[in-house]
Design a protein around this nucleic acid. Structure first.
Length: 322
RNA sequence: AUUCGAGCUUAAC
């Protein structure tokens, strides 16, 4: 059983749910670890249906879910957004008497926050009597993502006051809040803090630094951080490109777009949507059509965001027929 | 060391 579970974990971690599934069904000796491993494999794929199905089936087979099983369900719901399923499982967890672990608490908070249920997320947070770094960071991120950047900063100060030290992830959220609020003063001091505490590495943190500077209108500073990054991903490129686009530099934004492709990074729907919005805002018809052409020939999946910005671009450029 | 939680880009209106 032990070895089978190890192997199951290997399949799951390597992204082979099929392998995990086969192994899971080929043996008749399973315990809670086997179930949790398989459920989490589906959860990581975002397959909420499979997750709930397995979750129900394990109870039928007489295995009571533990804290970890619940975490997988909450995380799956957080990714896809059917709150009602999440609420039901949450209620079941309460009645079942399974202990609310730190992980379950955090994944619940994240679930409600990603489903835009800020009140319920705040409730989880307030009811927690031992707020750790993960819970604080998740709450700060949740406030930011739900349009309360100012409150996110207030929570950050409270976190510091309560003696919890921020991680790079926390600071990335705080910087994103500064970006949203245009708070260059706090943004800069966070930057200094990361340098003083040897926390300035890490792609997410650097991405949020770039974003903070350009959103505050400090294009040169943002570009300086960007150009010194040892590693970049599509978020880095989007951050710098959007900064230039929002400050009225369409040509430069398009330049970053070609650089991105030279760097062999794949543009995503955000890249394209931002460029189209930039074209729309200055009425750049030719460039807009060129981006549209790129979208058609790319392997980007059609999505509402791209469609909307295409419509916006064409109408702002006066081409109502397209 | 058989299974588990947080983070960065898509401004504002």
């Amino acid at each position: 059983l032990f070895l089978n579970n190890c192997l199951l974990n290997v399949y799951a971690k390597c992204g082979s749910v099929e392998g995990a599934k086969k192994l899971f069904h080929s043996v008749d000796c399973r315990d809670i670890v086997s179930w949790n491993t398989l459920i989490d494999a589906y959860s990581m794929l975002g397959d909420v249906k499979k997750v709930s199905e397995l979750f129900l089936r394990m109870r039928d087979e007489g295995i009571e879910p533990d804290g970890l099983s619940y975490v997988s369900v909450f995380s799956a719901v957080a990714g896809r957004g059917n709150v009602e399923v999440g609420r039901a499982v949450h209620a079941q967890m309460v009645t079942s008497g399974v202990e609310l672990t730190k992980q379950a608490e955090t994944s619940l908070l994240v679930m409600y926050s990603r489903c835009k249920k800020l009140k319920e997320a705040l409730q989880i947070f307030e009811r927690s009597d031992d707020k750790d770094l993960m819970l604080w960071t998740s709450m700060i991120s949740g406030l930011l993502k739900n349009g309360s950047a100012d409150q996110a900063l207030r929570f950050f100060w409270q976190m510091l006051a309560s003696g919890v030290k921020p991680s790079k992830e926390t600071l990335a959220c705080v910087l994103a809040s500064c970006a949203k609020l245009g708070d260059i003063k706090l943004g800069t001091s966070i930057h200094c803090y990361t340098l003083r505490h040897k926390m300035a590495a890490g792609i997410s943190l650097q991405n949020s630094l770039v974003s903070m500077y350009v959103k505050c209108g400090r294009l040169k500073q943002g570009f300086r951080v960007f150009s010194m990054m040892p590693e970049r991903n599509v978020v880095s490129w989007n951050a710098i490109l959007v900064g230039y686009a929002h400050n009225g530099y369409l040509t430069e934004a398009l330049h970053f777009f070609s650089e991105l492709r030279i760097a062999c990074e794949e543009p995503d729907y955000i890249t394209v949507a931002c460029l189209l919005q930039a074209c729309a805002s200055v009425g750049a018809y030719q460039q807009g059509k060129w981006i549209h052409n790129f979208v058609v020939r790319s392997c980007l999946l059609p999505c509402i965001k791209i469609s909307t910005t295409l419509v916006e671009m064409y109408s702002k450029c006066g081409d109502l027929v397209s």
